[in-house]
Design a protein around this nucleic acid. Structure first.
Lengths: 245, 245
DNA sequence: AAGTGGTCTAGACCACGCT
DNA sequence: GCGTGGTCTAGACCACTTC
């Protein structure tokens, strides 16, 4: 089975189910529990740790949702084969790059208030022509242009004037302004580069680009950001894990 | 608040939490509960329906996971603004197109056993050079070529010989063979069309294509399918909903 | 202070897969 | 038949937000 010793700290503010999930994930990632191996059943694990079964179940569910464990009724729960990829999360490219140990850089191409076009107004639940923040940035990594990003933000969400957007990620800025992003809807496609995009990204006109549009909503269900982005496909791709539930 | 009357059938094999989630989703989609509106608290809803709170919570969680509801501690649970898009699921393009009312068609370009190349062997946990099923198909919708799909399947998973792959989706075939797909890892990118791809998809060489690679795992954690696909970006894109949890 | 969701307990019965 | 995960109950206490 999977006998790694788990440690619980009942005085910690970290929920018990999350403490277990973290330790379980570590054990899977570092191979203490082998791919394909079956873990102990929920009842036994709960008893070992002095937890109730629902709490143990909740811990396991976290890893099932991440695609690391698979449940099979009447049989048991096993570790999925294959390497674990981080799934797409509600963070920005900036976070991704820093986590990868790269040297990202950002040039702000333009920032200011513009009237919302049809797309922007629809996605941000505004009247067409209403003022919104417009932010264009070019992302670099290791001296290579990587992505051209165009974001639109309702003016009542945050004040983009006098903020150093070259140094801070947009999402970090929103977080610091008290905006809690909870849901995002994305559309990923491909298209040829416009002459402008080609110039900025160092590609020829018509070269394949990976495109992504995203609308993000905060914890009140309000649309707080809409973005249209283009990525150099030789330097960036989207990875995600799907789980059938 | 959100008073649509829910109906429970305790004799149904459908779980109670799922019955509630379905009716709630319908009420949100058809506008019975307006975007931004707060729903009743969990305790009250549970009492109304004669359910325990954990069961009611489980029902709400289903919709939170779908990105339709947002919870806020100390405040309540609200409906997210914006139109609801179906998120990426563990199905095939064929299913997508049929659901959209389109007339999909499939040409099988080639099917047979081939030795696994390095990528295929790694993704399917096989020795390099081991025999695998190779399946190339061209997908059409409304007389337009849409996607060129290349799948690899371990020979012990299913027998592709003497199967009508033009009429049946690959995933349906695998389901019918007793394979239960539970987890898939995808990588979405973009690239220029090869001359061969251009010819089959009716695009010029170098035209932008949307690419997707997917490895799927069954309910035993075993890799059962690896695919490399190319889509015409004017006809197809990937939509997904991210939820921060 | 009051109300909300977040977590946790200690059980119960059922459906399913295997032998 | 037995062991597994799937569902469900009827509570409890806590953390956080708002008033």
């Amino acid at each position: 089975m999977a006998g790694p010793k788990f440690v619980l700290d009942r005085s910690s503010p970290v929920p018990l189910y999350f403490q277990i999930a973290e330790q379980f994930e570590r054990a899977i990632v570092d191979g203490t529990i082998a791919p394909g191996e079956r873990i102990n059943n929920e009842i036994a694990l709960a008893a070992e740790l002095g937890l109730s079964r629902p709490t143990m179940r909740q811990a396991i569910q976290v890893l099932v949702d991440k695609g690391m464990l698979v449940r099979k009724r009447g049989v048991g729960t096993q570790v999925v084969h294959g390497k674990i990829r981080r799934s797409v999360e509600l963070t920005s490219l900036f976070d991704d790059l820093v986590a990868a140990g790269k040297q990202p850089r950002t040039d702000v191409i333009s920032v200011g208030k513009v009237p919302a076009d049809e797309d922007v107004a629809r996605e941000l639940q505004l009247m067409r022509g209403a003022d919104v923040w417009s932010l264009e940035r070019l992302r670099w990594v290791d001296r290579e242009p990587l992505a051209l990003m165009h974001n639109y933000i309702p003016v009542d969400v945050v004040d983009l004037a006098a903020v150093d957007l070259a140094e801070t990620g947009l999402y970090a800025l929103l977080r610091d302004s008290g905006v809690v992003m909870r849901v995002a809807r994305q559309r990923i496609g491909a298209r040829g580069a416009t002459p402008e995009e080609g110039r900025l990204l160092g590609e020829r006109k018509g070269a394949p680009l990976l495109s992504m549009q995203r609308t993000a909503y905060d914890d009140a269900g309000r649309a707080v950001e809409y973005g249209r982005h283009a990525y150099r496909p030789d330097l960036y791709a989207f990875e995600l894990t799907l789980v059938d539930r």
